[in-house]
Amino acid sequence: MDNPYLPREVEVIERIQESPDTFTLRLRFTDPSQHASYRYAPGQFNMLYLYGVGEVPISIVSDIEDVHMLDHTIRAVGRVTKALATLKTGARLGIRGPLGQGWPLRQAQGQDVLIVTGGLGCAPSVSVIRHILRRRGQFGHLTILQGVKHSNDLIWRDQYTTWAKQPDTQVLLAADVTTADWIGQQGLVTTLLDDVNLAATRTIVMLCGPEPMMIATIERLLADGIPPTQIWLSMERNMQCGVGHCGHCQIGPLFVCRDGPVFNYPTVAPLLGVRGF
């Protein structure tokens, strides 16, 4: 029996500062055969272990065909992530994964894709955007809606500009609080939906961000006639073991780490937004 609790060793090959408190660690297994056999899907995550500190779940943002590196974009907010922020090239970490269920890319083939994200460059959505843009011909129209609280919070600003230039791709940005150089709209991300024409029957929606934002977006999409089963969302809970054993990440019957973090909307709908779940 494999030991799902035992990390394997990876090395920090490169560290990229994305914003004042957000950084990307590019990792490679120290054992080349482990690196060669590692396979994952966009939306899945790894447990990263920092010596003497502990583990934290981090989404994988590199492309599945990028065999050189596993990229993890991390915001320094907690005990482990703040310590991870101090790492330099050459540092060693433990890693367990890939864990959980990723985005429904098979179902999305040939469909229009709407990606709505809130907060700071939501990593699970970045992985799927990059995945689709690399395989542009396999998908229909791509719409990316990104909302942030303050326009200064947006990371990967150049990337959004690059994405907007891709064929058949629309990128719209919104910020609650804006500065003079803001290139998007002012307001909530849901207001961007006013400027989007959705083909309700052939659009797959992927959501990632704070739950109030996802709930508001879902209400609007349902009103616009998008079938509930066409909506997918990436959830966050207290994931500690990553394999559905420790119980912390449960939402009702769901183990977010194992059954998610990406869920079809009807699966999480009964308890979505219910306080205490």
Partner: peptide, 13 residues
Amino acid sequence: WRVARDSSGALAF
């Protein structure tokens, strides 16, 4: 599990 860290920072689980 237990992890050992050597002087180079390499980890053995």
